[in-house]
């Protein structure tokens, strides 16, 4: 029974990882045979400003993206978990951006943020506000991209919190009511601790996803201006497919893999000690 899934796992995951790790020790221009160069790619990284900048950009993006997205998603989950009217409609509406194609959304948002012809600056003009050059100003470009992705993925993240909230037994809240606990007290002492399994899942998947952001950047800024929105994942693309440095790009991929693996391990070990799965 397991054979097909192990085959898929090996062919589509293990084999490419092994190949990428191997290629990171080679010089390869995609066109002729790869040449073994040992640790040269790794040594080169130390002096590669653009690659180092892209690692910094990646962390910056993750920090802009994850806290905002997680807090918003949790707030929305709490809102649509209450007895508001039309909450089902809200649930659907919040999830809609996630259902759309990221590339198509990126193109539309690029139009919205166009400084001369875009909807946003036209709108701001009505209030006498001079809108920025959102996507060509290195101070704004990354926050704009992060906000587009927050907008896109918050609803999806909300779903997991919603499922987590509905798994919390009602009698806990009833007991808290009897004891006269305030709403903030109930949230911090009951809801949040019991959401830890959802929180663990959400943080691990969204942090990994966030480190791998590509499509929004590709269609909105292509890594510019001056490389300020080129994340490590985008840099890998640029190195391999515009510069034909497939070996060097593989080295960057190994670095990205290592960063994600370390952060994921840290998250798991942090949550493992503190998580309760059994509510009975």
């Amino acid at each position: 029974m397991l054979a097909p899934s192990i085959l898929g796992f090996t062919v589509f995951l293990i084999a490419p990882i092994v190949v990428v790790v191997a290629l990171s020790f080679y010089d390869w221009n995609l066109l002729s045979d790869p040449e073994f160069i040992g640790l040269e790619n790794y040594r080169e990284l130390a002096g590669d400003e653009r690659a180092l900048q892209s690692i910094g950009n990646t962390f910056y993006y993750v920090l802009l993206n994850i806290p905002a997205q997680t807090v918003l998603a949790l707030a929305l989950a709490l809102a649509v978990n209450s007895k508001v009217k039309a909450r089902n409609a809200f649930r659907v509406i919040y999830v809609l951006p996630w259902m759309a194609m990221p590339v198509a959304l990126g193109v539309i948002w690029r139009w919205v943020f166009d400084p001369a012809y875009g909807a946003l600056n036209r709108f701001l003009e009505v209030f006498g506000v001079d809108g920025a050059s959102w996507l060509t100003d290195s101070a704004w470009a990354m926050p704009v991209i992060a906000s587009v992705n927050v907008w896109q993925y918050t609803g999806y993240t909300m779903l997991f919190f919603l499922a987590g909230l509905q798994a919390i037994p009602a009698q806990l809240y009833e007991a808290a009511d009897v004891d006269g606990a305030s709403a903030p007290y109930r949230f911090f002492k009951i809801t949040l601790p019991l959401l830890r399994p959802s929180m663990l899942f959400v943080l691990i998947t969204s942090v990994i996803g966030s480190f791998q952001v590509f499509d929004t950047i590709h269609v909105m800024t292509a890594g510019g201006p001056a490389g300020s929105t080129a994340t490590l994942n985008y840099q890998i693309y640029l190195e391999s497919f515009t510069q034909r440095n497939a070996g060097y790009a593989s080295m960057l991929a190994v670095i990205l893999f290592a960063i994600i693996a370390l952060i994921t391990l840290a998250q798991v070990s942090f949550f493992r000690k503190r998580t309760v799965y059994d509510f009975s």
């Binding site: 062919v11 190949v19 990428v20 191997a22 290629l23 045979d33 497939a246």
Partner: peptide, 13 residues
């Protein structure tokens, strides 16, 4: 060589 074959296998996927 083998590296290239392996790389090709990965790219083909």
């Amino acid at each position: 060589n083998k590296t290239r074959t392996a790389a090709l296998a990965a790219l083909a996927l």
